[in-house]
Amino acid sequence: MPDETIIELQGVNKWFGAFQALKNIDLKVARGEKIVVCGPSGSGKSTMIRVINRLEAHQSGRVLVDGTELTDDLHAVETIRSEVGMVFQQFNLFPHLTALENLTLAPVWVRKMPRREAEELALQLLARVRIPEQAHKYPAQLSGGQQQRVAIARALAMRPKIMLFDEPTSALDPEMIKEVLDVMVELAREGMTMVVVTHEMGFARTVADRVCFMDAGEIVETAPPAEFFGAPRTERAKLFLSQILGH
């Protein structure tokens, strides 16, 4: 595995008013690495990955993405965001545009791609997530699983170096979770750097290089999946695992 660090969080702290959501976060992600972040709700997992593409701004510490530090410099932030793709729990597809138009929007307006080239790219990506026939449908006409796959394709259309997933399957009905996870597994196999917040432990076992357990704003334990699931070191990790794997 190449050793080059592509994401680095150094001593990152974040407060929402008086409430501290992130406490002294240190994390290094190497290029091509797959990190799964898990933990109880309110542990700061979503906040941490949103700090990586500056949807949330950290108050102290440093965040570096592909060598560039994230600060208030809007231009740098926008450049970083076009290199980092994000998939949301609520999909957030643009409801007034078709699936195809959702995919071509950013390449045309940010990367200044000619429309025909953008549409070809979009169709390729829709084929990759296995729904090429839905290209001209509106999001409201698609099932949840299809919408999330379109959302993944939309993020991929910008040819990102890193993909962030914020609980991508939590809003889906059970029978649709697999189709989305399959796409994510394929993406992982192709070598994409991924940081995934999820409760799907099966996915973590199959794909993750490291599992990062967070609780109350801190990273409590980081370990390869075999170690984390087999022999968790901290009490809090053991408690969490017993809760979600117990039933």
Binding site: R81, F88, L93, W109
Partner: peptide
């Protein structure tokens, strides 16, 4: 979420 999605695409 629409704002966030647009932001995250770098628009």
């Amino acid at each position: 979420g629409q704002f966030e999605a647009a932001d995250s695409l770098g628009l």
